[in-house]
Amino acid sequence: MDLISENLPALFAGFRLTLQLAVYSGVLALALGLLLAAMRVSPLRPLSLFSAAYVELLRNTPLTLVFFFMYFVAPQFGVPAFSFLWVAVIALSLYTAAFVSEALRSGINSVGVGQAEAARAIGLTFGQTLSQVILPQAVRSVIPPLINVLIALTKNTSVAAGFGLVELIGVGRRLSTANAGDPWVWVGVAVFYLLITIPAGLLAGVVERKVAFAR
């Protein structure tokens, strides 16, 4: 127990990096996922095919492999070497966007097709239909699965520990080595993860109630 309090500054530095990874990747993944979902339901066949291929490829590949590609394969093809933080953020975003896209698509599909037909009938374009009619209704049903995706993302940031970043798991390994593998180190690390994921779950509940409506 003392071990945790003595090493709070180190744990806090790891927590900050984990939070940074989760927030940056979360924002990018939501943006990219929204784009992918829009492409998926768009009437343009090449766009929807591209989106489907992307989602299937990334969703069915282990995240660690995505990191390996970013670090060891991409540079061979002349992709410049960024900072470790941004390589990790890009890998996490590319991967998570596939799941965001699927969550959004299921939400879009949950809105009755009559809504889209009515919107088109009054002369709205595809973009207007999506942004002003479909998505506002879809949001209500996608909040819980989206929060699930973001919680999974937070936990997935731990993969970055093997790729040059000293986030919570990296700090845990250092402290573990310095303290003969004292198990309290990992209790401390777990508590810091819960500090991110539990409030995210609570927030999801609040938002869900806010946007809920009686059908």
Partner: peptide, 23 residues
């Protein structure tokens, strides 16, 4: 390597060095 003795040595002996851990 993350969590290794060399990592601990670097942190202790070379405080001005940025230690980058891999798997």
């Amino acid at each position: 390597v993350s969590g290794s003795t060399p990592e601990a040595n670097l942190l202790e002996n070379f405080p001005d060095t940025e230690v980058v851990p891999f798997g």
